[in-house]
Design a protein around this nucleic acid. Structure first.
Lengths: 206, 206, 206, 206
DNA sequence: TATGAATGAGTGTTCATTCAT
DNA sequence: GATGAATGAACACTCATTCAT
């Protein structure tokens, strides 16, 4: 079994190597300024091999956006299931998890920003991301509403609160240098939470 | 004077036309995907003329970042002078003004994002923007501190609060579609203010 | 016999399938614009299998020219044996047969034209075809001469008459669209015959 | 005047040089097997300059077909005007002129054959050539009919006679090696004339 | 023998920059 | 100063051939 599987495994591994190299280089240099040859080199495969796995450079870019998006979706879609407790606790848990996520996946966030910055250039990808945002907002809204009813969250459109939260996360990765400490990220989580409701500097105790 | 000046004026006007065209196209299509020929066409000048005013494409890009930055600096540097009243009122005034500013200059914000996204590609420009941020934080900090002493702002590092505010502004232009209404921007201002201190939904009354 | 032969048969059949696919695609798209992968697909075999039967693409092209040529040779070489009667009747029979042949094998004629159009590119193949033409002329010449002596053919170099006849056949497949009717081909046969001698519009009665 | 004109003249000359180089190389090596770099070299210009004058390789190919076609049209369209005398004399004059033409422009005929051999690949060009043929046939038909009435031409569809004539011309350049003598071409003219009507070996005397 | 992934040379096209007019 | 033709480096993509399985 291991021998027979290894053929298929090797292929998968090569594809993954290319994809990871692409994520790295596209995020560092942008789509237009990343030659396919550089990706091949980074991935340790020959130039032509890239096109064995991805029809065009554009298709490869799509894959670098969409495949990680699937991994990330659960953290944004399954809010009720993943995060427990009161609305406040749920949102706290969510922010904890998501900021953590993006503090680690800076590369991926840079990729997303390239798409968000040019909707007309990447209409399909933009739509995917837009849909993602809208589903997230729909899922988060009931929790915000419950929190508003409990008086722990600000009044106002839940969609707006959710969007400002996403903006903050997106902007964070743009504005901040990589080497920020855990302490810094903790503080940013507090700031994120403050978009939902007041105070919350008691987080440290949690 | 009018005759001799008009020659100089004409030159200036041509340079300005090129610069504005560059801002528009660089922000829409990115630096790498904007041919100089397209800028010339958009500006209504001949291809070669672009190089009369800007030595290289790179120099032109620098100008599109740095020249508007100078226009914008007063709104971020002269906080004490421009915005009056209590610390809360000052920050309110500042947010009002700055969100207004960027809601209109989406193009310029997109340019900035290109630089922020690739510090290694544009080290000089990045340094300029980083300096800009740091000066802004230094100027804003005393006001935040005073507000904290008055109990209207959250406790915590003023730098952090300032940075989260900039992140939100930056992220807004990434996440939001252009057609948002004034109402939307008003709401975002409230959210921005909530990064400084609680509540503040009394803004509508101001 | 059936079992052991069937292995050999299968091989043969695969080789034939590849060859036919190659004739079709080379004639439609030209040698340079026909990828080996397309031939494999058309033939219903895997990509690598093509190279099992034909060392290189060039070798395959040679086979598509030379193997059908062998089939065709009898119709051009064995004039005395195949076509009977007076010189005029022999030539009539020959034209009937050959025009028929090429009206059906347009694909093959297109292949030949590719070689004829580029003697330097395909020197070996060109030589084969040139030899073919020369043998045909040598075989046809005595019949033309006899016809000239009988006064039914034009005077003049038999080689020239033969060559003009081949030119007409070749040109026909270039100039004419595929869907021509039988009536059309009949008329072309008359025109071909007129290169040999006058009148002959009595063909319809034969 | 010469100085100011020379700018425009130089451009024209460069364009012509590229076009002629393209005619030469496309006809020798075929469209697909002629790199643009080779054309540039042959024309004595740099690689990029080719694209200054012709947007794409395909456009250049179109020009190599269509521009000489315009030069050739008069010889095929203005039959009544160019060739005088009886129908027989007109056709004789026409053949003389046209065979002469193509005996010299073998390169161009090879280009045309590439288009005729692949109607689906070059639909626009094919249509142009098809239109050309049809106009020629329409113009020639009345003369053939008059000749038929005079009893010097064969009876039968004028279109068919015209087409067989074009086929012969086209096939000639395919089948014949370049070095043929004037004598040879003279003989071919006689053969061409025999597609119209009988005998005519009195041509030598004309 | 059959397969199809791996390779890298080859090519059309773009475009920043130069420079003669 | 203004123009736009000339240049050639850079790059995406194709595809014949090889070869491990």
């Amino acid at each position: 079994m291991p021998a027979s599987l290894s053929v298929h495994e090797k292929k998968k591994r090569k594809r993954t190597a290319i994809l990871q190299a692409a994520v790295k280089l596209f995020s560092e240099n942008g789509f237009a300024e990343t030659p396919v040859a550089a990706i091949a080199k980074e991935a340790g495969v020959s130039f032509g091999t890239v096109f064995t796995y991805f029809e065009t450079k554009e298709v490869l870019f799509h894959a670098t956006i969409l495949e990680p998006l699937e991994e990330i979706k659960p953290y944004f879609y399954d809010i009720e299931e993943r995060y427990s407790g009161s609305p406040l606790e749920k949102v706290k848990g969510m922010i904890l998890c998501q900021v953590e996520l993006f503090s680690k996946r800076k590369e991926y966030l840079r990729l997303i920003q390239q798409v968000l910055a040019r909707p007309d250039r990447y209409p399909d990808l933009f739509k995917e991301l837009d849909d993602f945002v809208n589903v997230f907002i729909d899922r988060l809204a009931p929790i915000i509403i419950k929190g508003q009813e409990e008086g722990v969250f600000y009044k106002g459109s839940p969609a707006l609160i959710a969007q400002s939260y996403l903006s903050l996360i997106n902007g964070m990765r743009l504005t901040f240098i990589d080497e920020y400490t855990n302490l810094f990220w903790m503080d940013m989580k507090i700031q994120a939470l403050r978009l939902f409701g007041p105070a919350h500097n008691e987080w440290e105790e949690s």
